[in-house]
Design a binder for these strands. Structure first.
Length: 262
DNA sequence: GCTGCATGATGAA
DNA sequence: TCATCCTGCAGCA
C-alpha cells in the first residue's frame, strides 16, 4: 500500500541490488510469463520511480512498468531466502539478490513510446526535483476541492491518501476548500511542504508528520497512528478535536475542523 | 466462512 | 459516480 515515498525507496533499493548486471526474469505466478521471457537475461540498467510508478529499464529499450495499486508489494532479499515465490507476478534475480513483485495492479512490458505516454500523464514528482509550476498552475485554476486535486496524479505525481491528509493538516487548509481559493503563498508552501514531508518519509520508510510525544506503547499500529495528526485518527493529534471524515475523489478525507480552516 | 474496506487507478455510464 | 481489478485483513456470523 505504497505512496510515492515508498516507490522511490523501492526503486533505489532495487537499483542498488540488481542494477548494471544481467537479470534472470520470470513470472512464477504465470500472469506475466510472456513479458518476463522477453527481457530474461538482459542487463537491468536501473529502476526508476515516477510518482507511484516503477520502471525496470533493460538494455534494448525495453522496460517493465509496475504499479502496485493498493495490494501490491515488493520483497527484497538474498537469492536463497524468500518463501513466497509461487505467488510472485514478477521475479528478478541477479548478483546474488532476488526481488519479488507481488500482486501489482499493473505489470507490463513497455517500449520507449509507452514510457513517454506514461510520463506524459504524470504531473511533477516532488521527489524528482521537477519544476512545480505546471502543478501550481493547475491548482490555481481548478474549482475542484484541493483534497481531490492533490490525489490527481496528472497534477502532482506520488501523493496518496495519507500524504494528502497530513500535508493539508500541516498547512492548516481544509481538504474541501476549492483549489483556486489558495493564494500564491499557500500554493508555494504546499509544494515545499510536500517535498519536505515526502523526502522525510522516503528516508524513514514511513510517513511521520507528528513528532513523537512520550515513550508509549510498543504496538506497531498505535505507533503508526501516533506519528500522524489526522489520518485514520479519532481525534486531532494537535488539539484533540474529533477528526471529521468525508469522501473526496472517492477516498476518505480526514481533517481537523479546528486546525484546518474551511 | 463471508463481507467489505484499504496508503490506487481505470474505464464505462 | 459506479463497477472493477489487485490481495490481505479486520470484523462479523
Amino acid at each position: 500500500m505504497p505512496e510515492g515515498h515508498l516507490i522511490h525507496r523501492i526503486a533505489a533499493d532495487n537499483t542498488a541490488l540488481l542494477g548494471g548486471a544481467p537479470a534472470g526474469v520470470s513470472s512464477p505466478q504465470g500472469r506475466f510469463a510472456d513479458g518476463a521471457a522477453a527481457v530474461d537475461g538482459r542487463v537491468l540498467q536501473r529502476v526508476d520511480a515516477y510518482g507511484k510508478h516503477l520502471l525496470y529499464r533493460f538494455d534494448g529499450d525495453a522496460s517493465v512498468h509496475v504499479h502496485l495499486g493498493m495490494a501490491g508489494r515488493v520483497l527484497l532479499g538474498r537469492a536463497s531466502e524468500r518463501p513466497r515465490v509461487a505467488q510472485a507476478r514478477l521475479r528478478l534475480e541477479g548478483r546474488g539478490s532476488v526481488v519479488h513483485v507481488i500482486a501489482p495492479a499493473r505489470c507490463e512490458l513497455v517500449d520507449p513510446g509507452g514510457v513517454a505516454s506514461l510520463l506524459g500523464r504524470l504531473g511533477p514528482d516532488p521527489l524528482r526535483d521537477d519544476d512545480p509550476s505546471p502543478a501550481l498552475a493547475r491548482i490555481a485554476s481548478s474549482s475542484a476541492p484541493i483534497g481531490a486535486v492533490l490525489l490527481d496524479q496528472s497534477v502532482i505525481a506520488g501523493i496518496g491518501n495519507v500524504l494528502r491528509a497530513e500535508i493539508l493538516f500541516l498547512l492548516g487548509i481544509h481538504p474541501s476548500r476549492p483549489a483556486r481559493s489558495l493564494d500564491e503563498e499557500q500554493r508555494r508552501r504546499l509544494w515545499d511542504e510536500t517535498v519536505r514531508v515526502m523526502r522525510d518519509a522516503r528516508d524513514r520508510g514511513r510517513i511521520v508528520t507528528r513528532p513523537p510525544a512520550g515513550t508509549s506503547g510498543d504496538d506497531h499500529e498505535v505507533a503508526e497512528v501516533e506519528g500522524r495528526y489526522v489520518y485514520k485518527r479519532e481525534t486531532c493529534g494537535r488539539c484533540g478535536t474529533p477528526v471529521s471524515k468525508s469522501a473526496l475523489a472517492g477516498r476518505t478525507a480526514y481533517a481537523c475542523p479546528t486546525c484546518q480552516a474551511a
